[in-house]
Nucleic acid binder design. Sequence first.
DNA 1: GTCATCGTGGTACTTGAGTCCCACAAGGCC
DNA 2: GGCCTTGTGGGACTCAAGTACCACGATGAC
Lengths: 230, 230
Amino acid sequence: MPYELAGRSSQKHRTRTALVTAARDLVRQGVTPTVEETAAAAAVSRTTAYRYFPNKRALLLAAHPEIAATSMLPANPPEDPAARLDAVVANFSAMILDTEAQQRTMLRLSLEAEAAERDALPLRQGRAIAWIAEALDGVRGELSEKQFGQLVLSIRATIGIEAIVWLVDVAGISRNDAVALTRWSAQALLQRARTVAPPTPSRSSKQGRPSNASLDRISNTPAATRPTRP
Amino acid sequence: MPYELAGRSSQKHRTRTALVTAARDLVRQGVTPTVEETAAAAAVSRTTAYRYFPNKRALLLAAHPEIAATSMLPANPPEDPAARLDAVVANFSAMILDTEAQQRTMLRLSLEAEAAERDALPLRQGRAIAWIAEALDGVRGELSEKQFGQLVLSIRATIGIEAIVWLVDVAGISRNDAVALTRWSAQALLQRARTVAPPTPSRSSKQGRPSNASLDRISNTPAATRPTRP
DNA sequence: GTCATCGTGGTACTTGAGTCCCACAAGGCC
DNA sequence: GGCCTTGTGGGACTCAAGTACCACGATGAC
């Protein structure tokens, strides 16, 4: 039984909540607080903080910004799937930018995990999948279950904080332009899915090719023809 | 004048090279070495390592994997832009997976920068932009300079290590499926660009809308209609 | 050769992460 | 009231990052 559920659980719950709330407040300010600072802000001792979280990373991960919204659609959502998707992407992006400091912190923390524990912990699971799926409800019938899931994943991979970070930090474009680009990309993926289905995963070693005859010979390009690194 | 260019510069160059090489070897093994370990591997003292790099992060960033290839196209590249792009994306993805540990380390290090220094340092600038642009040479004429650049950026944002990390770690799909998905996505972006141009950046506050009349009213959705966080 | 310069190594220090152990005090139970 | 359980606080420790200072040794100029 985990520490926090045994014994005087309500007292423990208060202590844990104080820690998480303090951490959340500090992360929201864009800083990465020390364990001692977080504990002090929660009015508990550093030792107690380590009783609830095995390390600083776990403590800050527990402070992941809470997004209560169960939908990213406006009050009177449009019918057209493309319009619905764009609304969701726009709102999602605005939310990401609103909490950018926290999003960056969480992204960094998720990368600090060792390969072994990455498999174990369900980190950074957001609600984006559900929001996108809701937007695309109208095209569910046009695709297989698997293809629909793949489309949602590809859209999420394209519009997330990871893409924004690259576009802003490395490509050097403005946040507004980055969002415009991801919105455009999301539309592109949807359009393409309604024409050519996304790759169905893991059926054969050749899976994943765009079903475009002219691409076949490329997809079969053996490794030997690839450029090699020194 | 920076430390390494003044005085006995060739000796300093040897020392610096030894440090970077040692760091690169260690990062390639998937570990994040301590400064002391790196210095020992380079047969210099920890103190000297700090003379060349202000902190561990800078030292490891200097160990970014060297990719000498100036092109990701196979020996006899196809003419069709879509086929060329798929070849480049496939080879690029293979290269990313070959050096996944290093790519993850570099991505994490780039996120550890403070906002202030992010603006200053040109971090993690790879050659992907050039490789993608080369693949898409054939469609340059179909788009404006700006639109072409935006297309390249959106493709890079979709196929990079950031997307792979999300698809594998969070979405939980296999690396092969992740690559298949990014290849499919890249094709979608190209196709869409040849039909509807990517958003032209920063001309007005309304820039970035997909040029789809039915989307106009969504893009103008005021913040008040967005779901709000508690 | 001698000497000042300059790159380097070593040592000591501070700070934060993380661990361990023990003392204390607040809760429930009789 | 007393007693035992249990959550908490505090001190001491190790380790790595980062800084500061000083001594040694090699290099280049004369």
